[in-house]
Simulated assay, not measured.
Amino acid sequence: MHILRVLKGSDTVLRVPFDHHADLTGFEAWMQIRKSKSNEVVLDELTTENKRISIGHGCFCLSFPHEITENWSFRRGLFDIKAISPDGGEVRMAEGKILVIPGVTR
């Protein structure tokens, strides 16, 4: 399980590793943040389509721009990342917690 710390109101880029032997060539990635696994509300969504998640060699690179994080009203959440194969199959590759760190300097 991963714990991601995102600085509220700042541009934050984080990497989430996965098995470096996994070949995700041609795959897309999809990540959602929710307050709990059973909660229907999506707090944020990162995809390769919206260019907020990319697939590198052995890791997912996640982008949290300040324009989005400054409007977050939650302090904690859960996430998972799925890899979507070219034929539409889904594999959950990572999961964890998001901690939103508020700023002090204003």
Rank of each mutant, 00 (worst) to 15 (best):
M1A: 03
I3G: 10
L4D: 10
L4P: 13
V6H: 07
L7E: 09
G9N: 04
D11I: 01
T12Q: 06
L14I: 09
L14N: 02
V16T: 14
P17F: 07
F18L: 10
F18K: 01
H20R: 03
A22S: 05
D23L: 05
D23I: 08
T25H: 09
T25K: 01
F27E: 01
A29R: 07
W30F: 13
W30S: 01
R34F: 14
K35W: 14
K35I: 04
N39T: 05
N39E: 10
V41P: 12
L43G: 00
L43F: 03
L43Q: 11
L46R: 01
T47C: 12
T48F: 09
E49Q: 04
S54M: 13
S54E: 05
I55Y: 11
I55E: 10
G56Y: 12
G58M: 09
G58W: 02
C61M: 04
S63I: 09
F64E: 00
H66L: 11
H66T: 04
I68R: 02
T69M: 04
E70G: 00
N71F: 07
N71R: 02
F74A: 00
R75E: 12
G77M: 12
G77D: 08
F79C: 01
D80S: 07
D80A: 13
K82A: 14
K82R: 04
K82D: 07
A83V: 03
P86C: 06
D87L: 06
G89Y: 01
G89K: 13
E90D: 15
R92S: 09
R92K: 12
A94G: 05
A94R: 15
E95R: 15
G96N: 11
K97V: 10
K97W: 12
V100L: 12
I101A: 04
P102M: 11
G103H: 06
V104L: 07
T105P: 08
T105F: 11
T105R: 09
R106F: 15
